[in-house]
Design a protein around this nucleic acid. Sequence first.
DNA 1: ATTCGTTGTGTGTTCGCACACATTTAATAA
DNA 2: TTATTAAATGTGTGCGAACACACAACGAAT
Lengths: 364, 364
Amino acid sequence: MSSGKNAVVRIKDIALKAKVSTGTVDRVIHNRGRVAEDVKERVLKILKELNYEPNIMARMLGSKKQYVFAALLPDHTYDAFWMAPKLGIEKAEQDLRQYGVSVEQYVFNPHDPQDYVKMANKLTKKNPDGILLSPIYYNETLPFFEKWNEAKIPFVLFNTQIAEYDPLSYIGQDSYQSGLLAAKLVHYGQPNPCSILIAHIDEEMSNAQHLVKKEQGFRNYFIQQNLAHHYNIISTELNRSSQSGFIKKLDEILESTLDLKQIFVTTSQAYDIAKYLNQRHVKNIKLIGYDLIAPNLYYLENGDISFLINQNPKGQGYWGIYQLAEHLVFKKEVPILKYLPLDVVTNENLNYFRDEKSDTFVEI
Amino acid sequence: MSSGKNAVVRIKDIALKAKVSTGTVDRVIHNRGRVAEDVKERVLKILKELNYEPNIMARMLGSKKQYVFAALLPDHTYDAFWMAPKLGIEKAEQDLRQYGVSVEQYVFNPHDPQDYVKMANKLTKKNPDGILLSPIYYNETLPFFEKWNEAKIPFVLFNTQIAEYDPLSYIGQDSYQSGLLAAKLVHYGQPNPCSILIAHIDEEMSNAQHLVKKEQGFRNYFIQQNLAHHYNIISTELNRSSQSGFIKKLDEILESTLDLKQIFVTTSQAYDIAKYLNQRHVKNIKLIGYDLIAPNLYYLENGDISFLINQNPKGQGYWGIYQLAEHLVFKKEVPILKYLPLDVVTNENLNYFRDEKSDTFVEI
DNA sequence: ATTCGTTGTGTGTTCGCACACATTTAATAA
DNA sequence: TTATTAAATGTGTGCGAACACACAACGAAT
């Protein structure tokens, strides 16, 4: 089935069959006009009939068009999480170099909306062929979406989703589903009634829709399973800007919740909870968190963190750029929504999700 | 950093600098001989100096070389597991069609070594450019390895590893590690002492090294964690050829092992255990198995199977073919060993591992 | 009737490489 | 020395698509 008639169809073949020249076929394909209506339709029909697909090699070779993409993402020196998307972007750039793609990175201080806007403006001035960004500031982002739409510059979102405007595509995880998954893991490890803490660290819930969804998913799992009455689920927002405040709040929770058995950290700072539990010599509370950053891995290997849910941040960067190329360079259709798999990572399968190892591999 | 001097070097440039014609440079590059020694060295030096990299597009375009790969794999009508590799192979073929790659599939009855040999012979006669196979019969395979080595046909193994001869690469999972992972999941869900059953179904252990390794990994987890004395781990080989025998054996085990809490099925037949437990109205035994085949998914969604470890069979097929292409078509170096990630799949993240969804996605 | 512009169509060149073929140079035999 | 051959090197064409350009046909404006 996949083989069969494998005769590759060329423009020439189309031209022959339609009794026109290759130039005319070319004009039809690229919609350049200057073709009589009846001829155009005839060619179009044959194009479909013969299932013509342009030869990428020839296309790339002929036109020395260069594509400049721009990537707008937080500076990884503020939050190690952002190192991975950066690496993914660079790997994609590497893979696509042959096709004339280059990527300019615009990094901003993730704690400073001003800086975000500044870099977005700088990027916009450069008028790139495509844009990849993690729109962590909702309000600040919308005007840019309008600009880019006007300028017909396709943009891809990753990690943070903004549904209002229509990006070329969104790459990231389904936060709600990820909350469900975390709940399943918690429940599996804790079949008997107990208290569970959901901890949001260093983020304002009002401005972080994905954390809200994670919590919803988490809570709904227990509701769906008719287990809500067995578990006492409490949630809290912690802030590490004051170390003492952070510890004090945790102390209070632990004192007032004697049957606390699990903590679900919705951000990538599970390691700080692990550190705290270690200091307090608490041994019977299990931890689930996000992201394979170094300090988390330390506690995962220790056994202090049971599971980390991997958001595949490198893949987000990689596929973001790749989607742009698929669209602009290869002229393929790209899916509007691309949810990356929710990887459950433990000490035992960690190796396959680390950078070094998983460098070339693909889930198809 | 990635840009800088981006002037792409062409054969022409090399020729100019070396004061020879492009033909001579071409001969040097392809080692076609007929070049004076001193000239050859001069060209070679400049090639390195200017860091020449051939333009893939132009290369592919120029030479209409066709690559025929052969894939030797079990017939999926005998075991649904093999459907996925087949799909992966076909997807890879699709993706590589532009580069002149086609794949011929040779499927054999997995219960019949004779048939295996027959198809391997047939394949060998065709003298393909590259071979992908799952060498499920050790002894029968070795002579072919020798033949292919002599004929200098690169071959890639998947799913089953044979280390003795050197394949171009192996694609699959680390069975030992996968046993460790299963044990971790079991232990997480069963922190208190109990009995655990390891069930090997429809395979002869003597001929299935990977099952042995899975069991080793599983047992070693508990030893490493100093928990061996807490758990009573028993293992059994079950055969479904006799339905009554299958059930009888399970009945016996359940009767004699009252504190049995977990069953780890090392093959893809967890669903048959699930069915059995359902029939017997056993509710307090948890199940972990392998592979996202339809009947397993049914019980996973039911909740009767807690986790499935995904071996990414589609990816195995896809990457197997892709590795061959990387080597032969793109002339890149390929890693000898490629362990695919051990995916922990539950009802909550299942969607991302199903065919439909994960069709285009990659872990890089 | 000539000039012009518009529309429709065909031709020719380019991209970088592979490979067939042509040509030059050097070495050897007659 | 000249003819013969092998070795060394140069030239030319094709791959498929993109795009610039050439050209023909026809009506409208001069």
